[in-house]
């Protein structure tokens, strides 16, 4: 069965027929070619597929494409403008929070959801928000440092997290 989707993905309006059994993850990767969002488990445990759905972090492997009709979706591809990085991306680079990088897109999206909810998060709160994003490489410490730094930077030069 195909269903019709009318959504916004990274600000762009997208209207498409998609198979009803496609997850949001497959819709993004296979229909839209937005392969930045990763697949690591398909059961909501690893967080590699995390995107923002109407501003909230969700596992896109556990959302059916037809469920998002009318919604506003952000993926990692929406963060930078050309070669101009978003402060959270820059903080990940500067803090060596990216090793193999497979967890990175999901973690960036979880970080944005966090900073949206709380611009000045405690370490505990950071851990709460990213506990659903597994990383096998970094030991999380560089990631936590990156989020703290991004929060600091954004406090000094406030800007909307997503334009």
């Amino acid at each position: 069965m195909m269903t019709f989707l009318d959504v916004r993905v990274n600000k762009t309006r997208v209207r498409r027929f998609v198979p009803a059994h496609f997850t949001l993850l497959r819709f993004l990767r296979e229909t839209e070619g937005l392969t930045g969002t990763k697949c690591g488990c398909e059961i909501g445990e690893c967080g590699a597929c995390t995107v923002l759905l109407d501003g909230k972090a969700v596992n896109s492997c556990l959302v059916l494409a037809p469920e998002v009709n009318g919604a506003d979706i952000w993926t990692v591809e929406g963060l930078a403008e050309g070669f101009d990085l978003h402060p959270i991306q820059k903080a990940f680079l500067d803090n060596d929070a990216v090793h193999c990088g497979y967890c990175t897109p999901g973690l960036l999206m979880s970080s944005i959801a966090l900073l949206n909810d709380d611009p000045d998060p405690s370490e505990e709160k950071i851990k709460t928000y990213i506990a659903g994003n597994l990383c096998r490489c970094t030991g999380y410490i560089p990631i936590i440092n990156a989020i703290k730094e991004a929060a600091r930077i954004l406090k000094n030069e406030p800007r909307p997290l997503l334009k």
Binding site: R29, L34, T35, G36, T37, K38, C39, T75, V76, E77, L79, A80, L85, Q89, F92, L93, D94, D96, V98, H99, G101, Y102, T104, P105, L108
Partner: peptide, 21 residues
Amino acid sequence: TRVIRTDAFDKVTGRTRYSAD
């Protein structure tokens, strides 16, 4: 020294193409 990983830019922008991509 502390350097930025050479492959990190593509990874934070989602442009890196892993096999499944």
